[in-house]
Design a binder for these strands. Structure first.
Lengths: 214, 214
DNA sequence: TAGATTGTTAATCGATTAACAATC
DNA sequence: TAGATTGTTAATCGATTAACAATC
């Protein structure tokens, strides 16, 4: 199925959007779609859609288009959504709790195993039936329980330290909400969610367009 | 200061990172930096850094480099961080509360004026001394209180409806946390934070690298 | 002045769009 | 079969990198 050439990040970033739109079509009981129709809904050019999908295989059929269910499943597979991942959250503050309670999370195959914090007020409380553990136990916990993905929701000052413990214990991916860049070896994937960067871009665009006058 | 040509999105997306790294240098009392040194820290090429900065003006000095404080301030200004924005949050669930409590928020000039929800259990509670109002009052509230930025933290089913009320009442920017694309006229800036897309990209990269074996 | 480093132009690389033959 | 639409190649467009003259 997969072709040999390396897929560009530009393509990868569009995959979740394809997945989301195809999911919507599926719920609307639409069972086939052409690149042209999809283009009109999703806002990419039809040419780009065909080009993107062809990175991964021949999913379409000339004269017909794409089967929605098939394509949805294929893209889900490409994204690794057919797998299950054991995850932990470190940092049970606002963002940590929001992520823990984020419903879609489980349905995508990410299974929350444990939550850690260093605040005594948070240690022991339950979030989604999971008791918050002392972060001092993180290292020991990881040694006993292999975890795939670590989610970092601690302040930036402690983020690298937490990452180091995760990396040392064989974590494969880090979802980082701390507003800092983490050092990690090439075989550990780091994906950042930098909220303040997103907010700054909103602010920039607001001013650029001269819509905003104080 | 500003040049005439339209700045590409690729450049804009890098601005917050420049701002962050320059802020760190500033805190370390480093007062000058060359594109080469910055390149080593930030991970962009020196050439790209000079190219990027030159979109906005001549901030550097041949033979010297860039003044950290000056450049930090200039980029802050370009990003519109010297302004103040009146904001509201609609949706006081986990993400809404996390955003409301997000400390950096205020320091960047985003001032939270009100929070809305439709859940009777949430209406009336206080978050950061702000009482959660009934979302039914949103339209009236906006008519009486001009707001610059609306933050949408409601489920995707209600996101467009909330956006429409905001747009009708002259909101200029929307920071959208709902996992859906919003329809908005060109003069309303929409910036999305799609957490599940970020998670899917992590998942993709994990599988691509073949690091993940179930 | 000599050395350093920018600003900027030109060269390269990569991503998007257009076009169309292949084929269902 | 005729019409539709893909897969794919070629053309265009844009972004990044390299090079170097300008200049502090």
């Amino acid at each position: 199925m997969a072709k040999e050439t390396k897929i560009s990040m530009a393509v990868i970033r569009r995959l979740p959007k394809y997945h989301r739109y195809l999911g919507e079509l599926l719920r609307k009981d639409i069972d086939r779609i052409s690149s042209k129709e999809l283009s009109e809904r999703i806002g990419f050019t039809a040419s780009q859609i065909r080009q993107d999908l062809n990175c991964f295989g021949d999913f379409g059929q000339q004269g017909y288009g794409y089967n929605v269910k098939d394509l949805y499943d294929q893209i889900g597979k490409i994204l690794g959504l057919d797998k299950n991942y054991k995850t932990i959250i470190v940092g049970a503050g606002n963002i940590g709790q929001a992520v823990a309670n984020y419903a879609k999370f489980e349905s995508l195959g990410f299974h929350l195993q444990a939550i850690f914090d260093k605040n005594p007020k948070l240690i022991g409380i339950k979030i989604r039936d999971i008791e918050v553990k002392d972060v001092d136990c993180l290292d020991t916990y990881l040694k006993e329980n292999p975890i795939d993905i670590g989610i970092i929701c601690v302040p930036k000052e402690h983020a690298q330290m937490v990452a180091d413990i995760m990396i040392k214990n064989g974590i494969k991916g880090i979802w980082n909400f701390a507003p800092t860049d983490l050092n990690a070896p090439d075989d550990v994937i780091v994906e950042n969610v930098h909220l303040s960067e997103s907010l700054m871009i909103l602010s920039y665009r607001l001013n650029e367009s001269e819509l905003f006058k104080e």
